[in-house]
Design a protein around this nucleic acid. Structure first.
Lengths: 339, 339
DNA sequence: CTGAAAGCGCTTACAG
DNA sequence: CTGAAAGCGCTTACAG
């Protein structure tokens, strides 16, 4: 029994009302430049229009064995770093004729596996997985995945291509900049155990300091997950007698918390202490003092990931491009060390 | 010819290696409590495991005529308001056994239509569309959509159910609070032409002021799209001689820009001028002075939208719940009017 | 409890 | 330039 009377019209309905075969209807609807006689084409188009035909993408994908969808896995969106990355991925995908199917892990490894399973079941054409915390740890290998994939983040993994920013160098540059301003006593606000990026930034900072051959102090303030932790810790350090004159924060979030704590403790920034972050949120330019930060190119990473994935989909080789470099954005929260 | 040797194994392969029919294989894989003899079930499970079978969701959706996917349309993610909303939708959807398919419009009406077409073609089970600027304007009607949908945002539209926050009341409350502090000269930082929410907040504010029966001043500073615009405008007003002692900003973004401008112009906050925002970003508690704001429950709106959509999918009636109310979060940027 | 078969809505060699 | 038919990988009455 025909189903043309109920629900969405199918290509069969279009074919029937246009008086052509399903094959022909399919060709004019889906293959822009397949040779079809002009009058025939018009009849089909008109039939489709009048019926309000919307081709079923599921059926199409099933028949063609491809979906033109790329699965994108990120920890969260509330962090502007990921938000910017995802927006860039979405736009780049669109430009390549692909649709983004986004999945959130909340930073949880089990959930990451679950969402990847889901993406695989939906037969996405490829995958972009962003590291969050230890997210790439134990990620299944290229073979287990069985489809093109690119990673964004810090850790190399199983031979999957990866886009990353040189966090070590960024940490190095941050410390070098502050050093040049005369600072010799540093503190690093971070959460080392969870985020590789933070670890590498700290390492770069330490390497720079050790390499100067000049005496310095460097303290790690660990276990800080956001503004609130950072605020509490710096506040406490101020009470106890903060030694550092230069605070390097793992992200702008941490830096913003520190800035608030210093203000509340009556320490002048950058008069008494300088503060630097990483990421460069929009907000960072609009706090007072404004925040000096290492700008990480989240959007650019997203774009490159799509580009690299697209090359894989086309069967081209994906040349491993060099790491991205962070840029120092100098603002009001840093200044010469006192004395 | 069998295709079991290449690519992903299908249910046919599972059936064959388990020595059962495709129907039985399908039942054990997809229908948890369909009665199947235990030994048979085990054979199928084992076959699936050994083959690494992952059921094709496209085929399943096609056969069942439902996808368990809900399409979600938002303007952007970089704004924490939408980021929070989307995260809440994603989680709520997951809890209801649904997958979120997110599409970004960038606030562009044409692109919104395009992404909705795409979602329709993918046969999502339902739609959640968030207003951004004039986004619900000219949105196709319930009939044209031909599927369950719920709107989030300000404007009612074509009889589609809608989740919203009482922006007028929020604006009213903001003004009332400042009025109670003794302020009589107000300014509203906004972008009226594009965002209905902003319009309603301003209207609520004006209605309150007009209702007091006491002389007051109120100026609209229009055409402001973010921190930078807001900063520039307030900076300029300070040069020209700012009259208002109470600045109400359409969003925390606008408020943050204003705060920076006042700081740079040497005006004390809240000593000389009080500033209030809407939204309550995480950041807003960590600027100094910290920002008093009307907290909009973005996550709650997202959750309710999913819930309401789910009811529609189940064919239940969706009782129109009352509007959400914003909550005033009192912080350091507001204080008694001088004099 | 199990299987044969039709159907979901497309696409695409293959043959005219 | 056009059509008949097989196939994509599932699900699900229907009949045993």
């Amino acid at each position: 029994m025909s189903r043309s009377t109920s629900g969405t019209p199918s290509i069969r309905d279009v074919a029937r009302t246009a008086g052509v075969s399903v094959a022909t209807a399919s060709r004019v609807m889906a293959k822009a430049n397949y040779p079809v006689a002009e009058p025939t084409r018009q009849k089909v188009l008109e039939a489709a229009r009048s019926l309000g035909f919307v081709a079923n993408a599921l059926a199409r994908s099933l028949a063609r064995a491809r979906t033109d969808i790329i699965g994108v896995v990120v920890p969260v969106l509330i962090n502007p770093y990921y938000a910017a990355m995802v927006e860039a991925i979405d736009q780049a995908a669109r430009e390549h004729g692909l649709t983004m199917l986004l999945s959130l892990t909340g930073g949880d490894e089990r959930r990451r596996e679950a969402v990847i399973d889901d993406l695989l079941a939906r037969r996405v054409d490829g995958l972009i997985v962003c590291a969050g915390a230890f997210d790439h740890q134990k990620l299944r290998s290229r073979e287990e995945l069985g489809m093109p994939a690119v990673l964004i983040g810090q850790q190399a993994n199983n031979g999957l291509p990866i886009i990353r920013t040189d966090n070590r160098r960024a940490g190095h540059d941050a410390a070098a900049y502050l050093w040049g301003l005369g600072h010799r006593r540093f503190a690093y606000l971070t959460s080392l155990k969870t985020w590789h990026d933070f670890h590498d930034r700290g390492r770069g900072m330490m390497e720079f300091l050790a390499g100067t051959g000049v005496p310095y102090e460097a303290e790690i303030m660990d276990g800080l997950f956001g503004e609130a932790d950072s605020y509490a810790r710096v506040r406490q350090e101020c009470d106890w007698g903060l030694r550092a004159t230069a605070l390097i924060a793992s992200t702008d979030r941490h830096a913003l918390g520190a800035l608030a704590a210093l203000a509340d403790a009556g320490r002048s920034v950058p008069g008494e202490v300088s503060v630097m972050g990483f990421d460069d949120y929009v907000t960072s330019g609009f706090v007072r003092p404004s925040l000096t930060t290492m700008q990480m190119l989240a959007a650019e990473m997203g774009r490159r990931a799509v580009e690299m994935l697209k090359r894989q989909l086309l069967g081209k080789s994906a040349p491993q491009r060099p790491m991205l470099q962070a840029t120092l954005v100098e603002r009001g929260s840093t200044g010469p060390a006192a004395g």
